[in-house]
Design a protein around this nucleic acid. Structure first.
Length: 918
RNA sequence: GCGGAUAUGGUGUAAUUGGUAGCCACGUCAGACUUAGGAUCUGAUGCCGAGAGGCGUGGGGGUUCGAGUCCCUUUAUCCGCACCA
């Protein structure tokens, strides 16, 4: 009997499903392990071969952990709300719920063929009311809380209201949009609308008039992580800055905690670095500069207070609220003109023209508090309104942007730190000796910075502050296909629905475009009203809303009373291993952490971080194939001969090419225009050219996993995807080479069955050499799985079979079958059953994956590897220098070095010293 | 500009973590069995050289008895952030 993967895989997939092999329950008697994949957005194109890479890795790890005795939670679901389904609906009128349903069915079918061990009873879909009820619930909780900097956690807004009633803003230290200042009497005198206006400054989910990223083509606002280089990440449409009233989440409140929390996470350094960068913490001084002939003080932010003696001018952003006030009559026309010009430039132009120097004098002067000198104040768009205070003190000698500006306008450049060549460029480094700086002269920059922080506070000029680049997340989208906000309006004032009214279900509509008045699609629904008849919010929540807490819902997916039950949460706690793409670094992975920390503050979850360990799988690129048509003919020339002709390169479907050799018959059938194609062959073959490109339909390089499963089986696909290279590395998909892995599985099969189909296993005692091979393999593979080095573990399997040769001994092959089960579960199950086991491997307990077995497999004697003698572990030997000289040491240099020394330990390979410890 | 990562045969990669570079595969070549092979099996295969031998981990330099691995420098590619004061 030959290895019939089709039959085997169908059989076991069916059996796993029938027996609910992968169903998991809370079981306090066993240790838990939670392995999670980033759930997919079910697009219309289906899965290509790159998508399951991470799923296969997590599946292997889950199965391995299960074999080690852990109770493994390994769920899957769908991130089903989103733009593409809605764009498709606008074009075709087909309801997104319908297309989403179809796409999900297709995804499920494709995933099932690969043989994953998901507990499908825990599936979640973000677009279902039972699920998004909890997204809306979390939003209401955020609406109902503020962030206290005193307790460093979220607190009920009611407590803040009580405080205002008693003491006004006195003693309040909370994360807010605009700091407030009022007394208890003033609070009492406010109208309900005014009070709500104040509270919006504090709520963690709030509605405010802010500058937003507006994308006209998509007809919606976007969060910062959804915009790149002034274009929308989805679709690549231009994005402009616009002032709009929008819902936002106060993620900035958690900036410091997100930064601190990172220390305890097992994430890659690069990913942590991206998040640190995105949060962008910087320590600096907030300082006040007197304005000449005015009572006002201009507030600035600087990280370099040490350079204050080098300040020769000030700059404010064009959007700064004092621009008008600071502008003198003579300058008014020029300033207004400049601001009008800046407004005209789009965000994209502004980014593109980063190094263009522009600006204009306000005519006002500030007083340097340390030198008493009057310095001019400019307006320029190189200062951003959104960062710091929107105003800076300019130190041209030590900041390259200030330097460029000073050069352009002929302003003074006063060096205050020794170093660099001030004639040519600014000296920005935070190192060197202070000069021209009165009290600081002679100090090093590193001493001068803290000294100035103290000095600024002592003189009452300002204080030390911490600034973050992180912005609050804009939370509304002028779209249909998302979670509705559980909020209604009386006039301008927003009121939350009660928890009992959740879920607020998305009403069915037929026309998905914006209304004629430019309102979101929900405006078309006449009955989109609260119980009392007040209008409900028209926009919906963004894509990241539904994905922010889905890992919690998997713990207890059918709970109607809570997002997650206490017992379930305390058992599963957090995701132990999360596998997914790095593209979510500043989006989903930030929002999830924020969302989780908030729920942690309120006591709904027991861990402050959602994802303990995170592995980023690399991207799978496409490998395109080309044929070469001789210009003006329908003749195609093979790669090696193409230089003899004038040819045109044409993409050819990679599915009709094998090992770069074209199936010419299939090519003729591929497209009508090639039906009578002729070929110039080399060695009787047509060889195609190739290139690495993005995997996409237009390049004809999309490889469908279904095809691979059809031709080679799921086990081969799983192993080959892992064999391709290190998990975290991006690499092109190349079907060439898959034979090697397939051959390995056939070879494995033949150890159990001979050509006639007879079962060949016997109960003979293994030889020491066979045992050593087995133990070596067990050790190596366990280590490799723990390190996510799946490619090398597959190599180890291959070496093992090569070494075993035609060994049909049960004592060797039984543990090996268990070991291989995480990688190739179908064939392993089949062989396991053939050996007489009634249970599936994953229900059986077998000692291969127990610690004690690992210890037994360690050995310290030399082994033959590839015909060469190698030491598995360093071989230690105590010798005197005399012995070394007589027996071992051969190199002259080593002898010289050893003279007069008494080595304690010498590590050798035959004939040579490899390590000497004195 | 700042930060991070990577660089090894024709190809994907490996290297006991400072100790005989190229494991395991793909591909190629030769052979066996075959009516046939895009099946199976065996062997060879880093480069140059007929050979002895020499060279070899992007380039240059250093530390070391010994460097793919550590340090300095440089180049190329990829990724993230970017008038963030």
């Amino acid at each position: 009997m030959e290895y019939n993967f089709k039959q085997i895989e169908t059989k076991w997939q069916k059996r796993w499903q029938e027996q609910k092999t992968y169903r998991v329950e809370v079981d306090e008697s066993r240790p838990k392990f939670y392995v999670l994949d980033m759930f997919p957005y079910p697009s219309g194109a289906g899965l290509h071969v790159g998508h399951p890479l991470g799923y296969i890795a997590s599946d292997i790890y889950s199965r391995y952990k299960r074999l080690c005795g852990f109770n493994v939670l390994h769920p899957m679901g769908y991130d089903a709300f989103g733009l593409p389904a809605e764009q498709y609906a606008i074009q075709t009128g087909q309801h997104p719920a319908v297309t989403t349903e179809q796409n999900i069915a297709r995804y499920r079918e494709q995933m099932d063929k690969i043989g994953f061990c998901y507990d499908w009873e825990r599936e979640v879909r973000t677009c279902e009311p039972e699920y998004y009820k909890w997204t809306q619930w979390a939003f209401l909780k955020m609406y109902d809380h503020y962030y206290s900097n005193l307790t460093c956690k979220a607190e009920p807004i009611a407590e803040l209201v009580a405080h205002f009633a008693q003491k006004g803003t006195e003693g309040v230290d909370a994360a807010c949009t605009t700091p407030q200042n009022f007394t208890a009497d003033e609070w009492a005198a406010m109208s309900e609308e005014q009070k709500e206006g104040v509270l919006q400054n504090y709520r963690l989910a709030y509605r405010a008039d802010t500058m937003v990223n507006w994308c006209p083509q998509l007809g919606t606002v976007l969060a910062n992580d959804e915009v790149k280089d002034g274009l929308s990440v989805r679709g690549g449409y231009p994005v402009e800055q616009k002032r709009m009233k929008q819902w936002s989440l106060r993620v900035t409140a958690y900036a410091q905690r997100m930064l601190d929390g990172m220390d305890s996470l097992q994430w890659s350094e690069s990913l942590k670095e991206i998040q640190r960068n995105w949060i962008g913490r910087s320590e600096g001084a907030q300082m006040f500069f007197d304005i000449k002939d005015s009572e006002r003080k201009l507030e600035i932010f600087t990280t370099r207070p040490d350079t204050i003696y080098g300040v020769t001018f000030m700059v404010i952003a064009p959007e700064h609220e004092w621009v008008e006030e600071l502008t003198t009559e003579e300058q008014r026309a020029a300033v207004e003109d400049y601001i009008a010009q800046t407004k005209k430039r789009s965000e994209r132009e502004r980014i593109a023209e980063t190094h263009r120097v522009s600006g204009v004098k306000t005519g006002s002067y500030a007083i340097n508090p340390f030198t008493g000198k009057a310095i001019p104040i400019y307006v320029s768009d190189y200062v951003l309104a959104g960062y710091g205070t929107g105003a800076i003190m300019a130190v041209p000698a030590h900041d390259s942007r200030d330097y460029a500006f000073a050069r352009h306008f002929g302003l003074d450049i006063v060096p205050v730190v020794e170093g660099g060549n001030i004639e040519v460029e600014s000296y920005d480094a935070k190192a060197g000796k202070m000069i021209n700086s009165d009290i600081l002269n002679g100090m090093d920059v590193k001493e001068a910075i803290p000294m100035m922080f103290a000095e600024v506070e002592k003189r009452g000029l300002g204080k030390k502050v911490i600034n973050y680049r992180l912005r609050d997340a804009i939370f509304s989208r002028q779209r249909y296909w998302g979670e509705p906000f559980p909020v209604y309006y009386k006039g301008e004032v927003a009121y939350p629905l009660t928890e009992e009214e959740l879920p607020l279900e998305l009403p069915p509509i037929e026309n998905f475009g914006p209304t004629e008045q430019g309102e979101p699609p929900l405006a078309r629904v006449a009955e989109w009203k609260s119980k009392e008849g007040y209008p409900l919010e028209l926009s919906t929540m963004p894509g990241f809303a539904g994905s922010s807490a889905y890992y919690l819902r998997y713990m207890d997916p059918h709970n109607g009373e809570a997002l997650v039950g206490k017992r379930e949460n305390e058992y599963w706690r957090q995701v132990d291993l999360y596998i997914g793409g790095i593209e979510h670094a500043t989006g989903h992975l930030m929002y999830s952490r924020f969302w989780n920390m908030f729920l942690y503050d309120l006591g709904y979850v027991c861990e402050s971080e959602p994802f303990k360990k995170l592995v980023n799988q690399g991207m799978i690129q496409g490998r395109s194939n080309f044929v070469y048509r001789i210009v003006g003919t329908n003749k195609f020339v093979s790669l090696g001969l193409k230089n003899d002709y004038q040819t045109q390169e044409i993409h050819v479907d990679v599915n009709i090419v094998k090992n770069d050799q074209l199936d010419t018959e299939a090519f003729r059938k591929w497209r009508p225009e090639f039906a009578d194609a002729e070929f110039i062959l080399e060695d009787g073959k047509y060889i195609c050219g190739w290139a690495i490109e993005k995997m996409s339909k237009s390049m004809f390089n999309v490889v469908n996993p279904d095809h691979i499963v059809e031709n080679y089986g799921a086990d081969t696909l799983r192993m080959y995807e892992m064999f391709l290279g290190p998990l975290e590395q991006s690499k092109p998909w190349d079907t060439n080479g898959i034979d090697g892995v397939h051959k390995f599985l056939r070879k494995l099969w033949r150890l159990f069955y001979d050509r006639e189909g007879a079962f060949t296993l016997n109960n003979e005692e293994p030889t020491p050499a066979e045992l050593k091979t087995l133990h070596k393999t067990i050790k190596k593979i366990r280590e490799d799985i723990e390190n996510f080095s799946f490619n090398t573990s597959i190599s180890a399997f291959m070496i093992c079979l090569n070494e075993l040769g035609a060994c049909h001994k049960r004592a060797i092959l039984e543990p090996l079958t268990v070991l291989i089960a995480p990688f190739a579960p179908h064939i392993a199950e089949e062989l396991w059953e053939a050996m007489g086991h009634a249970e599936t491997i994953f229900d059986a307990a077998y000692p291969v994956c127990e610690e004690q077995y690992l210890k037994e497999s360690a050995f310290e004697y030399p082994v033959m590897v590839n015909g060469k003698l190698r030491f598995k572990q360093n071989y230690s030997l105590k010798m005197t220098p005399a012995e070394i000289q007589s027996d071992i040491v051969q190199t002259e240099g080593a002898q010289k070095w050893l003279e007069g020394k008494a080595p304690k330990k010498i590590i050798v390979v035959p004939g040579k010293i490899i390590n000497i410890v004195i």
